[in-house]
Design a protein around this nucleic acid. Structure first.
Lengths: 211, 211
DNA sequence: TGGTTTCCATACCGATCGGTATATAGATTA
DNA sequence: TAATCTATATACCGATCGGTATGGAAACCA
């Protein structure tokens, strides 16, 4: 069985393609799968709906991605890589306020722009997937913890640079900022208008500590 | 078929109980069902798990509650009545800051105290139930809208009383407060510690506008 | 070309899904 | 006690769940 990981050999060059080549684009299929998981959640997405959206048959899916759980993980990887790119640029902002601005505006444009489903895959995965393998839950939580650490470190640097008042800790400000962004995504998925979401971002920035 | 609504007649007195009386306590069974929906979500909760937790058989469940969707709605009613009682007392706080304090502390004690599942049923319902009848989604959203309006009205009164600065609108502050609370519940359901959640509440109150 | 390798379409697997028909057990009314 | 009404227990329903066995079809290497 060939999985997505086998497409490149150790040296990074395309593996010797023997036999009939795959008839579909893995990236495209995975994008379609991500979209289904995004709108339906893990349990709500059936293999029938997934295969139809991906334009492939079940044997092809299982040969290429393993099983439903593995497919979900790969889709989550794609999500993180494609849709959460603004996280890295946000952390490079020159000030703590700039970090918050880029985070919030990044989340905002993702929620009101494009034709992507509303809501955040991280929130969906954490809230909606209480039934299946703990491995996924733990992985989602581990990713969140890693991104949290990066934000905490950035805010500690900001404090050292006199960029944040003394009475707020980096940890507290991080969980606060993440909470607002999670709330933003919840409200977006429950049908809040772009104007309401924009108001939410503006209010958060207005209340942001420091000049 | 007798449903939960038929237990009281129009005058509010117990209906004439003819035939064999029900062998289980409706309230207790509904509490158990709520707990299952709360931890598993709508789709993740199977009728088998529900009946086992409720201690009744499937025919009893269907005779008493109708079907899975109706059972979920009744459980949601119970949740709102029992677990969201702090909402009403919060709105009666003398100042806008007091309202925020009672809201946040109410949500906090619900998340860190007792043996209830983590997370908020409203968030779970909104995020995790994208597959089934729109009627439920619309009802959840309608309830949220109604509670939002109450908070907006309370904050407009606060503005009229000079209790809030002019540069914040009641609508924006409402969606902001709700966002923080939604974020709080998301973080609680992903395993945040009580200390972290408490920090989040304190930070929010520290940044709250006005004296 | 032949042989090999792999992909894909169909059809199917047991398990579980939400929901129900039937028959028995139990309580009330008369 | 007899008649009546309803709850419960068992067993079952068709549909769908995630996942696979099998048999061509298609592309590569020689």
């Amino acid at each position: 069985m060939e999985t997505i990981d086998d497409q490149l050999d150790i040296a990074g060059t395309p593996a010797a393609a023997r036999g009939r080549p795959r008839q579909f684009c893995v990236e495209t299929a995975l994008t379609a799968a991500l979209r289904v998981f995004w709108t339906r959640g893990y349990e709500g997405a059936s293999m029938a709906e997934l295969t139809e959206a991906m334009g492939i048959t079940k044997p092809s899916l299982y040969a290429c991605f393993g099983n439903k759980e593995a497919l979900f993980c790969k889709a989550l990887d794609l999500y993180e890589r494609d849709k959460l790119a603004y996280v890295h640029t946000a952390l490079e902002a020159p000030t703590a306020r700039g970090v918050a601005e880029r985070f919030l505006h990044g989340a905002l444009t993702m929620q009101i722009g494009g034709d992507d489903p509303r809501g955040c895959m991280g929130v969906i995965s954490a809230v909606a997937c209480t039934n299946f393998a703990d491995s996924i839950r733990e992985e989602v939580m581990a990713r969140r913890a890693s991104s949290d650490r990066a934000i905490v470190a950035r805010f500690e640097r900001a404090k050292a640079e006199g960029d944040l008042p003394d009475h707020v800790t980096a940890e507290a400000l991080t969980s606060y900022l993440c909470a607002v962004m999670q709330g933003l995504s919840v409200q977006a998925s429950t049908g809040a208008s772009p104007e309401e979401l924009e108001q939410l971002v503006q209010t958060t920035l207005m209340l942001w500590p420091g000049r």
